[in-house]
Computed example of a mutant assay.
Amino acid sequence: MKITLQQKQELARQFGISLPMLQAFLEVESAGSGFFSDWKGQPRIKIQFEPHWFKRLLPGDILKNIYELWDKQEKGKVKLTDTQKLLLHNWQIAVLNKVDVQQAEWQAFNCAFAIHPDAAMQSASWGLGQVMGFNHKMLGFASAGEMVEAFKRSEYEQVKGMLHYLENKKGMMAAIRSLNWNKVAELYNGSNYAAGGYHIKLAKAYVKYSKNGQIA
Rank of each mutant, 00 (worst) to 15 (best):
Q214E: 14
L87G: 08
V78Q: 13
F49Q: 02
F36E: 05
F25C: 06
W126Q: 03
F15A: 02
M121F: 03
N182K: 11
E167Y: 13
N192T: 09
K211F: 13
G34I: 03
M132A: 07
I17R: 00
N182G: 10
S210A: 14
K160R: 15
D82W: 04
F35Y: 11
W39K: 14
T81I: 12
P20L: 02
E27P: 00
Q14L: 07
G41T: 06
R44A: 06
K183N: 11
A175T: 09
K75C: 07
P117L: 07
N97L: 04
F15R: 00
K75A: 14
E146W: 00
N189W: 01
L187M: 04
M173F: 12
Q23R: 14
A203N: 11
L96D: 14
G213T: 12
F113C: 04
G197D: 11
H164I: 12
L63A: 10
Y193I: 08
A195C: 02
S37V: 08
V184H: 05
H52P: 03
R177D: 13
G140A: 06
K8V: 06
N168L: 02
H89V: 09
M172V: 13
W126L: 03
A119Y: 01
N135H: 14
A216I: 14
I45T: 01
Q107T: 12
P117D: 10
H116W: 04
K40T: 14
Q158K: 02
I115Q: 06
A31E: 13
H52S: 13
K79F: 12
L202E: 09
R44C: 02
M173P: 03
E29H: 02
A31V: 11
V207A: 15
Q42E: 15
G41P: 08
F113A: 07
N110Q: 09
I66K: 05
N65G: 08
G60W: 02
Y193G: 13
V28D: 06
A104N: 10
A203Q: 15
I17T: 05
M172Y: 04
K183G: 02
A150P: 06
K208A: 13
I93S: 09
I3C: 03
Q107A: 12
E74H: 11
Y156M: 01
K55Y: 02
G140Y: 04
E68Q: 14
Y198Q: 08
R56T: 13
L128H: 02
K160H: 12
V184K: 07
N97V: 05
A12S: 10
L87Y: 05
A194F: 08
R153M: 05
D71W: 10
F141L: 04
G76V: 10
V99K: 10
G145E: 09
A144M: 01
W181C: 08
V148F: 01
M138Y: 09
W70D: 10
E155P: 08
V28W: 06
G145L: 04
G171R: 05
G140N: 09
V101N: 09
L63P: 01
H136A: 06
S30W: 00
A205P: 03
I66S: 11
F54D: 09
K72W: 07
L96C: 06
L19V: 12
K208G: 03
W106Y: 13
I66F: 11
K98I: 12
D118W: 00
G34P: 02
N65C: 08
F25A: 08
G60Y: 01
N110G: 01
G127Q: 02
I93C: 10
K137Q: 15
H164R: 15
G41H: 04
L128A: 14
L26I: 11
Q23W: 01
A174T: 14
N182C: 07
F49M: 03
